[in-house]
Write a protein that binds this DNA or RNA. Structure first.
Length: 595
RNA sequence: GCUGAUGUAGCUCAGGCGGUAGAGCACCUCCUUGGUAAGGAGGAGGUCAUGGGUUCGAGUCCCAUCAUCAGCUCCA
């Protein structure tokens, strides 16, 4: 096994080298066609490569075509790459001479005394650590995909450069396979498929980031919510229902007024607030609301852990360019929960949260696509966070120890924490490979004190509980989006908005079809009746069946026997059966969901 | 928010140089027919995203706004 993995890694490394070389070919081509272009950076990425340029006008799609042709010529000439090294000062001088200010800046940021490597390909020279293919001809297949703006050094304070994305492979076939894969991804894209399947829609009148769940989408979300609430109840959670808005006072205590004002929908403004007028804001999270539930009466150490959950709708004023389908929206509903624990309970409760999240992912079939991120604070950016450095550091160590003891394979990242504590984020990739957080579990040693939440310990002392913030499947809209893409719209039977489609061949069967519908519906099966009486056969029906687990066809011959022809998405033709038999089978199938 | 592209019937799209809108599929009615994306006849549906402007006249040109898409930045 180790050997195979090693080989795969080596292959990936070679592909990255090839793509990095392709980015140099791109830069050379751009320099030839647009001599005024200034070079920034051009790395290989997982799916290909890009290069950033500072140019007067953005690249058009025609520009890309011409650049790609020029790249083909360089590859055909099999231009050789030669490495050479310069001391720092000479390197800066060379880049000044070539009028490449971004390269100069890059070199100046590198440590003193370091030798700097360059690669020369024909008359084109680029600062680069390498490695590279020996010649451009090794790039067998290359394709430019798109141009887009990107900030220099990834900061919106800097100038926006023009980035060209492309991909490269060592064979024509591999490139074609990748392009096919991109088309397949587009087909599964929840934003397209979800609209086609009438799961959701949007309205220009309602606004950006505010999708409407249509009956089928609303049904799936309802099923998910019932499932989550039932499961959490079994695990000792207590459901709350708290208001969707609160006075600014609440958010001042929580710290959101200072740390999250831009992200909130405030019904009024800071000036009104300063004048002492009542200013309400829609809630961007549930924490302080559930804290008020905790504060309803005095708490004993015997009451802990106290686990609150809520199917909670939140509002966040995302900036206009961020919104995307059901993945990034301005209003969403989340399976939110807060656990108040004694210090000696935190570890077990944290584990319980992780296990619950994993159980949810297993049930939905998403676990294999999840990755874990340990999101830490950024000690160099103190104004983003509340509390003392010691609390942060000790909380992070504490969390890390739990993660390690659970054997969770995570990546640690600085600057990704919530403003009040570190997080374990469970990340999911969408069909295009873009990553988003689905589930988050956080440890918070700070807010209980801010809100004056206490319990009386066995020694009679008032103490602050430790708060765990957590979601179990995260936001329902986002989960729905991931499920659409995971199953290409063909939901598992227990989640399918339509479990059975009842069809007829002639209107003489319509009454009998309605009886079958009533029978199934009475048993809690989600039925869609289609009385169009189309004269089409099973093979054709399969096309529309793709998204529906079961299909029943009612016809005259079957009417005589009081039977229906049944077909399953999974098992194919089930033959002609008594409706009761079909019902039994269906119920069994629906109950196969993990419990 | 930034860069770019896009916005014509439910869907996919046509509409060279400005002269007040079309196709396929879907939908509705009727006929034919119990079944392999069936045939025939007819029908409905668009203030061309919205608001301004230029013009005798704008889907077509200009500006603004809104929305959608890709990427960046930010985040669940």
């Amino acid at each position: 096994m180790g050997e195979i993995r090693k080989e795969v890694q080596q292959e990936n490394q070679e592909l990255r080298t090839l793509r990095h070389t392709a980015s140099h070919v791109l830069a050379q081509a751009v320099k030839k066609l647009f001599p005024a272009a200034k070079l920034a950076i051009g790395p290989a990425i997982d799916t290909g490569f890009y290069y950033d340029f500072d140019v007067d006008a953005p690249f058009t799609s025609q520009d890309l075509q011409e650049i790609e042709k020029e790249m083909q010529r360089i590859i055909k000439r099999n231009a050789k790459l030669e490495r050479f090294v310069l001391p720092r000062e000479e390197a800066i001088a060379l880049m000044r001479e070539k009028n490449e200010p971004y390269k100069v800046e890059l070199i100046e940021d590198l440590p003193e005394g370091e030798e700097l490597s360059f690669y020369k390909m024909e008359d084109f020279v680029d600062l680069c650590a390498g490695p590279h293919m020996p010649s451009a001809g090794k790039v067998k297949a290359v394709k430019l995909l798109q141009a887009a703006g990107a900030y220099w050094r990834g900061s919106e304070k800097n100038k926006m450069l023009q980035r060209i994305y492309g991909t490269a492979f060592d064979s024509r076939e591999a490139l074609e396979a990748y392009v096919t894969q991109l088309e397949e991804a587009k087909r599964r894209d929840h934003n397209k498929l979800g609209r086609e399947l009438e799961l959701f829609t949007t309205s220009d009148l309602i606004g950006q980031g505010l999708p409407i769940l249509l009956p089928k989408g609303a049904r799936v979300v309802q099923l998910l919510q019932r499932f989550v609430e039932d499961e959490e109840e079994q695990r000792g959670y207590l459901l709350t229902k708290s208001p969707l808005m609160a006075k600014s006072d609440l958010f001042k205590v929580s710290g959101h007024w200072d740390h999250y004002y831009e992200g909130m929908f405030v019904l009024g403004d800071k000036e009104m607030d300063a004048r002492g007028e009542e200013v309400l804001a829609l809630r961007p999270m549930t924490c302080p609301f559930q804290f008020q539930a905790y504060l309803n009466r005095t708490r004993s150490y015997r009451d802990l852990p106290l686990r609150y959950n809520e199917t909670s709708t939140l509002f966040r004023n995302e900036s206009s360019g961020e919104m995307h389908g059901l993945i990034r929206v301005r209003q969403f509903t989340i399976s939110e929960g807060h656990l108040a624990c004694r210090p000696d309970q935190v570890e077990a409760e944290f584990r319980g949260c992780v296990e619950l999240a994993q159980f949810m992912l297993d049930t939905l079939g998403l676990r294999e696509d999840a990755s874990y991120r340990f999101s830490k604070w950024d000690p160099n950016n103190r104004e983003k966070y509340i509390g003392d450095a010691e609390v942060w550091e000790s909380t992070q160590v504490f969390m890390q120890e739990i993660l390690d003891s659970m054997g969770i394979d995570y990546t640690a990242e600085d600057g990704e924490a919530a403003f009040y504590g570190p997080k374990l984020d469970i990340q999911m990739r969408n069909v295009h490979g873009k990553e988003d957080t689905l589930i988050t579990i956080q440890i918070d040693f700070q807010l209980a004190e801010r809100f004056g939440m206490t319990y009386t310990d066995s020694d009679g002392q008032k103490k602050h509980p430790v708060i765990l913030h957590r979601t179990s499947i995260g936001c329902y809209e986002r989960t729905l989006a991931l499920l659409i893409e995971k199953y290409a719209g063909a939901f598992p039977t227990w989640l399918a908005p339509t479990q059975v489609k009842v069809l007829t061949i002639t209107e003489r069967c319509d009454d009998w079809a309605r009886e079958v519908e009533t029978l199934l519906r009475a048993s809690g099966i989600r039925v869609e009746l289609d009385l169009r009486n189309e004269k089409i056969g099973f093979k054709i029906r399969e096309a529309q069946m793709e998204k529906v687990p079961y299909m029943l066809v009612v016809g005259d011959k079957e009417v005589e026997d009081r039977t229906v022809a049944a077909r399953s998405r999974k098992d194919g033709d089930l033959g002609v059966q008594e409706p009761q038999d079909v019902l039994t089978r269906l119920l069994a199938e629906i109950r196969t969901r993990v419990r």
